[in-house]
Design a protein around this nucleic acid. Structure first.
Lengths: 233, 233
DNA sequence: CCAAAAGTGTTCGAACTACACCCATGA
DNA sequence: TCATGGGTGTAGTTCGAACACTTTTGG
């Protein structure tokens, strides 16, 4: 990085983080949003975010915000893109780093959620969002799709135990398209990332569907879907 | 984004951009670096960067830096990741957004390059870099590999006209592995992204190899390598 | 005519797709 | 016993990997 003169001659900026928080519930991929409580855009739907402090990284800040809202730590959290158009917010210039977070809806603290007035809304019917938040959601979803295509998704979103149907529903929610049940099952099993329990879910059918669970991640590439390198060349 | 109180109560930060500038020359993928001319780390190898001004986006800032150095505008430029560890630089806290840039080495302005003391160094034998710049390079290279796996690369890096061997060499440089000449040719041709000229390069062989050029990008997905969706599911 | 690079063809297997079929069980 | 979802099997096709083969041309 090339600072020509002194540090003090350069502009300083307000920096925020905004979290695109995905959850999965009742067969739907959902997003945690809240109605903004102050101007500008008071009352309109917004991602959940906060400002960056002096002594923390963007990742720290996003984690802090998430802890505040959901009560959870150790959440899957990844930086996606930094939005920096000078006029992205009116009146004040604020840059914002967008993060994806994946959480299990049943795990989070319902109380702090309600205090904020936050709600889980289905990604298929999102309301209008403030500023460039919709673009943040788009990028976050693309990130999630990319991740789910390269590595078996669900570890952070599904409950501890889940059926194949639930896993497939999750994939169908992420990619907004149908997957062949048989082929999906075989492909996933071939990845060796999940294992069958001896418990069955009998609520959806008479026969009952086995619950599966994710294996411990021994091999860091255990559930990779593609081999390394440029496929096709 | 959720600002609890007034904007003025929040910390402001120095923000920089750093460019990972790739070029391709003599069968090698290269990086434009320079020796830092001031402390800290004076004399050590560094990416080329600059500070973010009040009224520009990060993309603008990166473009400005690139123009300064290479004399070129309309360069391929993409944000990769924002580095924000509080101690990533000693003494002062500076966040930095890393960018990938792709340029044709023969096109750039040699003069402004020399004034800065910048040099093209092969990615296979990089010197030690200051701060977290090496991590920036790693992320940028991953970005480039990803892009080259999904869409035919070379448009921004190769000269106007190039042989198949040159294109294959570029891919071998990007992925650091060999590709089968026959299979590579067939795969690339099937993408319909390049067209043969009637000129041959006779410098490398008696028979001569046809020069090819990239087609105009009519279809924005013209040179996509994968179909949409989650391959494998 | 032959060496060497350019370019084409052929074979094999892995893996994705589509879809038919069997299985288990409660009403 | 039969309707319903759970789960398995199979045939066809596509596509990449490996590698043999043909073409061109200057020396």
């Amino acid at each position: 990085m090339s600072e020509q003169v002194s540090f003090y001659s350069h502009a300083k900026h307000l920096l925020a983080v905004d979290c695109v928080i995905f959850g999965y519930e009742q067969g739907e991929l959902k997003l945690l949003l809240y109605r903004r409580t102050f101007d500008p855009q008071k009352g309109n739907w917004s991602l959940i975010g906060g400002f960056l402090n002096e002594d923390e990284s963007l990742e720290d800040a996003a984690g802090r915000v998430l802890k505040q809202i959901t009560g959870l730590t150790n959440i899957f959290l990844q930086q996606v893109f930094t939005f920096s158009q000078p006029d992205r917010e009116p009146n004040v210039r604020v840059l914002s780093a967008a993060f994806v977070a994946l959480i299990r809806i049943d795990q989070q603290n319902q109380e702090s959620l309600e205090k904020l007035g936050a709600q889980w809304l289905s990604v298929t019917k999102l309301p209008e969002l403030i500023f460039d938040h919709h673009e943040m959601v788009d990028r976050a979803l693309a990130f999630l799709q990319n991740r789910a295509a390269h590595e078996l998704a669900g570890r952070e979103l599904l409950p501890e135990r889940f059926t194949f149907i639930q896993l497939r529903n999750l994939y169908e929610a992420i990619f907004q398209r149908a997957f062949d049940p048989g082929n999906f099952r075989k492909k996933v099993l071939s990845l060796n990332a999940i294992e069958r329990t001896n418990v069955k879910n009998k609520t959806e059918s008479k026969r009952g569907a086995y619950y599966y669970r994710f294996k411990k991640k021994s091999d860091p590439n255990g559930d990779r879907i593609f081999k390394a390198g440029a496929a096709g060349f």
